[in-house]
Design a protein around this nucleic acid. Structure first.
Length: 218
DNA sequence: AGCCAGGCCTGCC
DNA sequence: GGCAGGCATGGC
């Protein structure tokens, strides 16, 4: 089977297994952005606590987050870890929304995907995965989000051995026949699958899928 | 008790 | 342009 077919089949398997994971779990595009920064190298359950703290005080707008004292912001997002860096990154991001986007993150939709990505990447604290998560889940740009899970999974399934974000993303862009929703759910399924993957458990989701996969592919 | 989580920046080379 | 080291909390 061709690699391209294998990649598309992988998504079908995941979609059959998990269905619509309804990513990103957030009420507004702005919340997606804040969540994307907070979740950097951090368990999502910890991020939820931080988001909850912000919501309880009605602080989840760029204006409120610009106004708030940085030390107080640090206390509120503390559960998400790396709170010193993340507080600064959130401040920088909100400043960007205020000064460059006229207060509306959706203004980025006026730009080409390349330009919008460039603008996000220029912000300190926004790397490729964070930028792409914002582009895909907050702005509905059709771009594939790569992470460590993705490259690991692709290697294990034998659809390519990538150790490089751009090359892996490029591979998906060229070979995955999915619409916007499927781009969103593909990444979500990969994360969901890999989170539950454990070497010690013989019948974790990964193994079940792999068996299913082997049976139906080869 | 130790390892990991939905990364990114800096400072080296 | 690649790569270690630092950042910090909470769950298992």
């Amino acid at each position: 089977m061709k690699i391209q077919e294998k990649l598309n089949l992988l998504y079908k398997l995941l979609d059959n297994f998990y269905g619509d994971l309804k990513w990103w779990p957030a009420e507004t595009p702005f919340e997606v952005c804040v969540g994307a920064i907070l979740t950097q190298n951090t368990n999502w359950t910890n991020v939820e606590k931080a988001i909850k703290n912000l919501k309880e005080k009605n602080l989840l707008t760029y204006k409120k987050l610009i106004e708030i004292d940085t030390e107080q912001l640090k206390r509120l997002i503390k559960p998400a870890g790396f709170y010193n860096q993340k507080a600064e990154r959130i401040k920088i991001f909100c400043d960007f929304v205020d000064k460059k986007l006229d207060g509306d993150i959706l203004s980025l939709k006026k730009f080409s995907i390349e330009d919008a990505r460039e603008m996000l990447l220029s912000l300190k604290g926004v790397g490729k995965e964070t930028a792409d998560s914002i582009l895909l889940y907050a702005l509905d740009f059709k771009i594939f989000v790569v992470d460590a899970y993705t490259m690991r999974l692709f290697k294990r399934y034998g659809v390519g051995d990538y150790d490089n974000y751009d090359k892996c993303q490029d591979f998906v862009h060229k070979n995955f026949r999915g619409d916007l929703y499927e781009y969103k759910n593909f990444h979500a399924c990969i994360v969901e699958l890999c989170k539950s993957y454990c070497k010690k458990k013989p019948l974790c989701n990964f193994c079940i899928l792999k068996k299913y996969c082997n049976k139906n592919i080869e």
